[in-house]
Design a protein around this nucleic acid. Structure first.
Lengths: 182, 182
DNA sequence: TGACAAAAAGACAATGGTGTCGCATAATAA
DNA sequence: TTATTATGCGACACCATTGTCTTTTTGTCA
């Protein structure tokens, strides 16, 4: 595959991402993607063997980027960053893959999603442990609290696709997490 | 419609409920329902005009039953009941409509789901206020805490469809809510 | 420029769903 | 029994989507 081919693959993924965010997984067809990308069916199938193929690649991209905890960084600062990111995500209804992920997950791939879930939990509990160590956070059960933070977020994210959210709801989330930890 | 017709309608809904719980909303076809109910396509369409029609009826049934807060009842006892129910729901993967609801909701009906959401919130914040009044609960912000309880639950419910849950996860939920309130 | 490979187009049959229609059968009332 | 109504059947035409296949266009290098 040449240089142009790579660009095209990427373009396809970008457009697919938008489509999945808009319509979920099941609702997106290769024909939809044709319109968005300007490619023909034949052209598309040269790159991906179907919507599941594309989605799998998007997922693995999405979850391959890790935040890092630098030695010596302030736990509170990291927390603030993470919460800011979460807050922004909740408020932008359009770009959430959550429905698509949910639909895609319901077709199988249990192990993949166990890994994703575990990694997200670990990320939070890692931060919590770190914060407790540095004395910046209260002493709490990292496993318990990280589950709370995570699933609360997932629930929010889910509903934020369905109904319009007020600032207050996102704010409550941030406040709750902060009060629990700090 | 005669007596037999009513029975048939009910049978259809029962089978449809199972199907929706298994496969979500979009994936269920009238043809699927034929196999389950033993009816033919023509027979089915005599009762419902499509899957959305059936689902709407199931939804309205599902959300028409209200728990009641009797005067003089102990807030803690009510809380215990509610948590017990939640706990059971989380552990039984099969019968969750959550994916179906999510998919169905993503097709529109914003107002309906705002009402459902509001009602669920009110139910919790009502209990919290009541508990604070009777002195059984700590003084917290009912709105803030009820959102936490609710979305945490939703997130859990979502993931419990995707990956197998350990007892501990459900337990954490119950414990967290309890510690927050009592 | 011409040859060759990569990229893209679009027609194709196959599949699997939709909702409707006319007819058959079962239940019921006269 | 007979007439009437409720219930159920399955064929039908229609539509969207799928993945494949052949042909055409584009780009690159000798």
């Amino acid at each position: 595959m040449g240089d142009k081919g790579d660009k095209t693959r990427e373009r396809i993924r970008t457009e697919a991402y938008r489509l999945f965010a808009e319509k979920g997984f099941k609702e997106v067809t290769m024909t939809d993607l044709c319109q968005r990308t300007g490619l023909s069916r034949g052209g598309l199938y040269r790159y991906y063997s179907g919507t599941a193929d594309i989605f799998a690649e998007i997922l693995s991209e999405e979850y391959s980027i890790h935040g890092r905890m630098e030695e010596g960084e302030s736990a509170r600062a990291i927390l603030e960053d993470m919460l800011r990111a979460v807050r922004e995500e909740i408020m932008e209804k359009e770009l959430s893959l959550s429905l698509a992920i949910y639909e895609y997950a319901s077709l199988g791939n249990e192990e993949l999603f166990m890994r994703i879930n575990q990694r997200a939990k670990d990320r939070w509990s890692g931060l919590i442990k770190y914060g407790i160590n540095t004395g910046e956070f209260k002493k709490t059960d990292p496993d318990q609290v990280s589950e709370l933070i995570l699933y609360y977020y997932q629930g929010l994210r889910m509903w934020s696709r369905i109904i319009p959210f007020q600032e207050k709801t996102a704010e409550n989330y941030v406040r709750t997490v902060w009060e629990l930890l700090v």
